[in-house]
Nucleic acid binder design. Structure first.
Lengths: 232, 232
DNA sequence: ACAAAAGTGTTCAACCTACACCCATGG
DNA sequence: CCATGGGTGTAGGTTGAACACTTTTGT
């Protein structure tokens, strides 16, 4: 008897991953959606998904489908939740594990993504989604808000250099509420996670605002201490 | 072509659920562990687990194995995370979704559980666990702490009537740190979730302490407002 | 009498919120 | 010159942490 014989006779299931892909552009939080290429609901807007193979972890599967579609690797991903209602997918019994990913939107990946028939939608103006994907998005959004209240998420979503107003706009998009500019500045700078550069961005204001970047030490961003506290 | 034919050819996986079962007794947070009945690692201490069938959700599967082993139904359960390393189980490639459950420890279920070869262990004195079950426990513990900081978790873990000192001891066990009695009392009572009864418990103090129970309206405990804030 | 928990009150520091205010500059 | 965003400072309210203090009663 080989090791794998032990579980023979136990039920097996189709297991997929679905990715809620967040990006930030034009002061808006956006979601990358795809038009489904197979029945059922062919042509419907859907999250990026794919089956999990027997020789890969769920994290691998999620990174694989993300890479294949956007050409992006080393993307921050976080597990949201497994969805497993028996009838959630009319095409068959599929257990799906949802991840969310944070990616910066560049011109390059925009083009690649367009060729795949994918499209960026603002989170508060989404089309109807197939299956239970709307619920997946809602839960991913909550998880993102939770993370953003403990960690500064700019590193994953913004370009390398950014102004504090851009970071604040990002947070306003994530929490869907306006934040006081002065208070946000003080709170964020007190975390000592940002480094001010000797450059100014003058395209968004007359006076010009200093550019910042994240300090290099990546350990810092994992410390519990930082807690942004946007009061959900 | 039937609906289910669509996904034919896609990989299928063994999917299991594992339950981190929390209980509270003798001022300690405890975990219900089982001795594994099959190879590999037969006899090793393990979480309660079982395969997920093709005709049930993961939540159903978890409730099913819990009911079967403890005889308890309507138990609070919360999904923690999926574990899917290819080699996490030497017996085969099994994707496991972890839940944690909160159950009150009564005499009746203690006996039933004993007959199954299961045993309650204090969380800070656990035996070595099989596979990746230790990591599962750690993550479940963190998730429980998160929940306990937003919701009062006494309803699920304590008997119907309890003193504030018992509730505080529970929180001390969950957060593994001492809490100021006066401050805890004020914070908890300010939530207006507890109702004082005209009875006193004199077995644990000379003076006697009032017994409390949760107010009946269950919606209240789901409101976001309550936030206990034990500062993790 | 004393120990031990019950229950209440007070103080201090930290922090969030809401502003007021000046600065710089492109139109 | 004025509207706009940049950037700094301040006053008020809330909350948590620490701790003092009184009450009650079994031993």
């Amino acid at each position: 008897m080989t090791l794998t014989d032990i579980y023979k006779g136990s039920p097996r299931n189709y297991v997929s991953v679905d990715c809620v892909i967040f990006g930030y552009e034009d002061y808006e939080l956006k979601l990358l959606l795809f038009q489904r290429e197979i029945e059922p609901e062919k042509g419907g807007w859907s999250l990026l998904g794919g089956f999990c193979g027997e020789d890969e972890s769920l994290e691998n599967a999620a990174a694989r489908v993300l890479d294949k579609t956007t050409g992006l690797t080393d993307i921050f991903m976080d597990q949201v939740q497994a969805f497993s209602s028996v009838d959630r997918d009319p095409g068959g019994r599929v257990i799906s594990i949802v991840f969310y990913a944070l990616i910066p939107i560049f011109q390059q990946n925009k083009e690649k993504v367009n060729r795949k028939g994918a499209k960026w939608f603002p989170v508060n103006d989404l089309p109807e989604l197939i299956f239970d994907h709307s619920e997946m998005v809602e839960n991913a959004m909550k998880k993102l808000q939770l993370r953003a209240s403990y960690h500064l998420v700019g590193r994953e979503l913004l370009t390398e250099q950014f102004t504090l107003m851009q970071l604040r706009s990002l947070y306003e998009a994530i929490f869907q509420k306006e934040l006081d500019p002065g208070n946000f500045r003080k709170k964020v700078l007190s975390l000592k996670l940002l480094e001010r550069l000797n450059k100014k961005n003058t395209t968004e204001s007359k006076k010009g605002a200093y550019l910042y970047k994240f300090v290099s030490e990546p350990e810092k961003s994992n410390e519990r201490i930082l807690k942004v506290n946007i009061s959900l």
